[in-house]
């Protein structure tokens, strides 16, 4: 098993920041808002490794900073500090020292992202097939027939009716939009996928089928994934390992079954106890 991603000391502070920011925020003081300068310490000192084909769960309540972690890694938001190394077969990329063009290249070719809000991941003004085509065209695939075949194959794989390949995603149900987003994210066969609360807000039955799909894809394609969720059920189903976050800090990390059956931190114990 090879490492695909190594994250060390990842931090993101919104606001001016001050010397007391770090000691004045975090799980011990129950806030991520610095009382001295008003900055929000969204995440501080987040470190983890991800291996090829592995699913890592990042769990926490809203405000824990869990989404900020994947947004930083997908270059949606520049972090304030820390580093991340992406090991791409025989090359390695120091993610935050790349220039904007290199970052966009990785984002378009080697990473995939599925957002909670399909509006962020899909262009609602072009067809479902067009959304996938866009990502393929970024990879310089210039054959219309091949693009169309691949788009259809991806939509079929994510169980979107092929009769809807040319429809606008804004006319799709929430679950279907997520399927199109997943198909789009997978278009370039990325080795690394980020999923940010992808099933939140969907009907339970729809949630279950999306989660099944994610697991099947992980088994078929051996895609490494970082799954952000507040839902312990999603973590239990998908993730082999998990990290638990609170007010921007990682408070616990471990094997998923160990975190659920033998949580170490008071907060995780409360979280697990309230869910089971």
């Amino acid at each position: 098993m090879n490492k695909i991603l190594e994250v060390r000391g990842l931090s993101k502070i919104y606001g001016p920041g001050c010397p007391q920011c770090l000691e004045s925020t975090g799980p011990e003081v129950d806030t991520n808002l610095c009382p001295h300068c008003g900055s929000v310490v969204a995440i501080h000192d987040v470190s983890f490794d991800l291996f090829e084909g592995e699913i890592l769960g990042v769990m926490g309540e809203s405000g824990s900073g869990k989404s900020t972690v994947v947004k930083a890694l997908y270059f949606d938001q520049a972090p304030s500090g820390g580093e991340a190394i992406f090991y791409d077969s025989d090359r390695q990329h120091d993610l935050f020292s790349l220039n904007a063009a290199q970052q966009r290249w990785l984002r378009n070719h080697r990473f995939g992202m599925v957002y909670q809000n399909p509006n962020l991941g899909l262009n609602f003004n072009i067809s479902a097939g067009g959304n996938i085509a866009e990502r393929l065209l970024m990879s310089d695939l210039m054959d219309y027939g091949a693009i169309r075949e691949r788009a259809k194959a991806l939509l079929a794989r994510t169980e979107v009716l092929l009769s809807r390949v040319d429809d606008l995603p804004k006319n799709f149900s929430g679950g279907m939009q997520q399927r199109v987003q997943i198909a789009k994210a997978l278009a370039t066969r990325p080795p690394l996928l980020f999923l940010d609360e992808v099933t939140t807000g969907l009907d339970l039955s729809v949630q279950a089928r999306i989660l099944d799909l994610i697991l099947e894809i992980q088994q078929e394609l051996k895609t490494a994934m970082v799954v952000v969720t507040h839902d312990l059920g999603v973590i239990r189903l998908l993730a082999g390992r998990a990290i638990v976050m609170k007010y921007g800090r990682v408070i616990e990390t471990g094997l998923t079954d160990q975190i659920l059956e033998d949580p170490q931190h008071a907060y995780t114990q409360r979280l697990v106890a309230s869910a089971l």
């Binding site: 471990g254 094997l255 160990q258 059956e261 033998d262 170490q264």
Partner: peptide, 9 residues
């Protein structure tokens, strides 16, 4: 058993 399997630390 759970300790060996590391479901328990």
């Amino acid at each position: 058993l759970k300790g060996i399997y590391r479901t328990y630390l």
